[in-house]
């Protein structure tokens, strides 16, 4: 979805050339608008990185320094050594990785069953599952907490993993994609005695990379970034995710801003790196899911 391939934008319709040739800028005048605007969007994040390498003395004077005098890694040393950021990082990674993997596996299985297999109750079940997508999380969070408590999972990563094992969204996104694939290949393999599972694994999934990456990207983003559910399900700091750890850490280290910002960088870095390396997949996933949702 690169905007450069777009057919002539409306504003490019120029009136006929005027008599007196105006002096033209060596670049499009739109840069004068876009450059400062886009920098304004980036500025808070630049400031985040800058302040994470400042000393607390630089930050805590008024007016505070706007540019670090040198690179001071004290904040990073503190959060990696004294605080539990490495532990929280690992927790977040485990929860997100399991959620991504299981959404891909169970989403593909469920999506394939709905797309290609005829079985009793499939229509009713599909409509029922679609309907549950309209239930907001705030409605289910209190009973979900009670269920997790009864299962003895509160304060464990299990409480975070189980609700995100598979979402109806993943099932339906993959179902729609599978439906768009030609059937002939699959049926031929199937008649030749290939099991459904082998057909799915060997023929369907290799063709479904765009849809699978959409599921992976969106699952990773939502589980990594979630705060509400960890806040409810986790009390003990050894089980915190990064988001929960970061906000708690900020509450406890109110004036150690350099350390807080170092922790913040660590929290956003994986998402940021993933986004920068797979920008196309990210934007495509978000656009397609948005337009389909």
């Amino acid at each position: 979805m690169s905007a450069t391939t777009v057919e002539s934008a409306p504003a490019q319709a120029r009136p006929a050339p005027v008599a007196a040739p105006r002096r033209r800028l060596p670049f499009s005048p739109w840069h004068l608008l876009l450059m400062p605007l886009s920098l304004l969007f980036a500025l808070p994040l630049v400031w985040l990185v800058l302040s994470s390498v400042m000393t607390n003395a630089e930050i805590n004077r008024f007016p505070p320094a706007l540019w670090p005098s040198g690179i001071d890694l004290g904040g990073y040393r503190y959060v990696l050594g004294n605080a539990m950021f490495p532990r929280w990082f690992a927790n977040s990674l485990i929860v997100s990785a399991v959620a991504v993997a299981s959404n891909l596996v169970f989403g593909a299985l469920g999506g394939y069953a709905f797309a290609r297999m005829r079985f009793a109750g499939s229509r009713v079940l599909m409509v029922a599952m679609l309907a549950t997508m309209a239930i907001p999380f705030q409605l289910t969070m209190i009973p979900t907490f009670l269920i997790m408590k009864r299962l003895g999972l509160i304060d464990t990563l299990g409480a975070l993993i189980i609700p995100s094992l598979v979402t109806p969204f993943a099932v339906f996104l993959l179902r729609q994609f599978f439906l768009s694939l030609p059937r002939e290949l699959e049926e031929a393999a199937w008649i030749d005695g290939c099991s459904r599972l082998r057909v799915l694994y060997l023929i369907v999934l290799p063709l479904s990379r765009p849809a699978l990456s959409t599921v992976a990207v969106l699952t990773f983003l939502t589980t990594w970034n979630d705060l509400t559910w960890p806040l409810i399900a986790i009390n003990h700091d050894t089980q915190y995710t990064l988001q929960l750890g970061l906000t708690t850490f900020q509450g406890q280290h109110h004036t150690q801003w350099a350390a807080v910002m170092a922790g913040n960088v660590i929290t956003v870095l994986p998402v940021l790196l993933a986004f920068l390396f797979a920008q196309k997949a990210f934007i495509q996933s978000i656009t397609s899911s948005g337009l389909k949702g």
Binding site: Q12, M35, N225, T247, T267, V268, F275, F282
Partner: peptide
């Protein structure tokens, strides 16, 4: 939505905050 240089970079910069968690935004 026009063919000028750097348009991809501008779009990236404007979009980046969207992937940042609300927690990180709030702390920042």
């Amino acid at each position: 939505n026009r063919r000028i240089k750097l348009v991809g970079l501008y779009r990236t910069l404007i979009f980046v905050p969207f992937v940042i968690s609300a927690t990180a935004q709030g702390v920042l």
